[in-house]
């Protein structure tokens, strides 16, 4: 039997060890989200997350965030799912510009959009008043859930609540002219930010692209009305809350088409006397097969929203 040659030098041994080390070692174990700032217009950067559910594999990086670099400072739009994400986003910003962060916007109350807040100056944290109130009340439950779903990536993540209340309309920050558009429907308060210089529309979670919309706190009627309003808006590109950036209104229409189908399916099911378990057994039509997680989100939406459709079909006040 021929013997395999054994590496003798220390360097050779080290190289062999590196070859044998599982690739994932470098990923999850060092809790590096590998955030990449992508420039999509002059001074406009986005960090695009995966279109997946929260998991210990992705550490919650399933969400988009962005920042705008002005002449005097940086405006941050959403801070991601964890303290680590916030810190790594801050580092990613510092690789682009030495300017200070002057405004950190939380678009709405969901935890993947504000749990990176700890990494940003507290006085810059800002949101619409309803969002501030909702975060103060609901953050403890959100944080507990995010620890369960994302595991150790969440380490040391605590609530840093936005304090500065934003009002809809024009706002200048760091040398960028913003238009703040206050809408609702995905949650009770959803803030859309238009960068006036480049026409980039940060649509928050009112718009999903290539991924089925999530509805844990949705009001579908209001959401559809907000999408109508957004389609009236002129813009050059849209940054959805989840999924890739688009040069046109296609993701707005796609989100509306799905939500309209969902709303109709729930109402018709309740009108026809279907039980919730029968609703859950229905397949999502093939026309939505291009949306990631469509069957999972449909099932979540049924458990969340069907009771209200039932209440209406049974003609009840409460």
């Amino acid at each position: 039997m021929k013997r395999l040659p054994m590496p003798t030098s220390g360097l050779l041994r080290l190289m062999l060890l590196m070859l044998l080390t599982p690739f994932s070692f470098a990923g999850a174990a060092d809790f590096d989200y590998r955030l990449e700032s992508r420039r999509i217009a002059d001074g406009v950067y986005v960090l695009i997350g995966r279109t997946e559910d929260f998991s210990p594999d992705n550490g919650g990086n399933v969400v988009n965030s962005g920042f705008l670099v002005g002449a005097q400072g940086v405006v941050v739009i959403d801070t991601g799912p964890s303290r680590r994400y916030g810190e790594q986003m801050r580092a990613a910003i510092a690789r682009i510009t030495p300017l200070p962060v002057v405004l950190t916007i939380n678009s709405h109350k969901h935890p993947d959009h504000f749990l990176g807040n700890q990494a940003f100056p507290p006085e810059t944290l800002a949101a619409l008043p309803e969002t501030i109130r909702a975060i103060e009340v609901q953050a403890p439950a959100f944080i507990e859930r995010m620890y369960k779903l994302n595991g150790a990536w969440m380490g040391a993540t605590e609530l840093a609540a936005p304090r500065r209340a934003l009002a809809p309309g024009r706002l200048e920050a760091g040398g960028r002219e913003l238009e703040l558009i206050a809408l609702d429907g995905h949650t009770e308060s959803d803030l859309v930010v238009l960068d006036r210089a480049t026409g980039t529309l940060f649509a928050a979670d009112l718009v999903f692209n290539g991924r089925a919309p999530t509805t844990p706190h949705a009001n579908l009627k209001h959401w559809l009305a907000s999408l109508d309003r957004l389609e009236q808006q002129s813009f050059t590109q849209v940054v959805p809350g989840h999924g890739p950036v688009a040069p046109d209104a296609a993701p707005i229409r796609e989100t509306r088409r799905y939500l309209h189908w969902l709303d109709q399916t729930l109402r018709e099911g309740a009108e026809q006397g279907l039980d919730m378990s029968e609703m859950l057994a229905q397949p999502v039509p093939d026309t939505f097969s291009g949306l990631a997680l469509s069957s999972q989100e449909y099932r979540r939406s049924v458990t969340r929203l069907y009771p209200e459709a039932e209440r209406i079909a049974l003609d009840m006040r409460r």
Partner: peptide, 16 residues
């Protein structure tokens, strides 16, 4: 017994 394999809403788990 028909119940979801994963129930996201533990307050309201449909069972048939």
């Amino acid at each position: 017994v028909n119940a979801p394999a994963v129930a996201d809403e533990p307050l309201n788990v449909p069972v048939a």
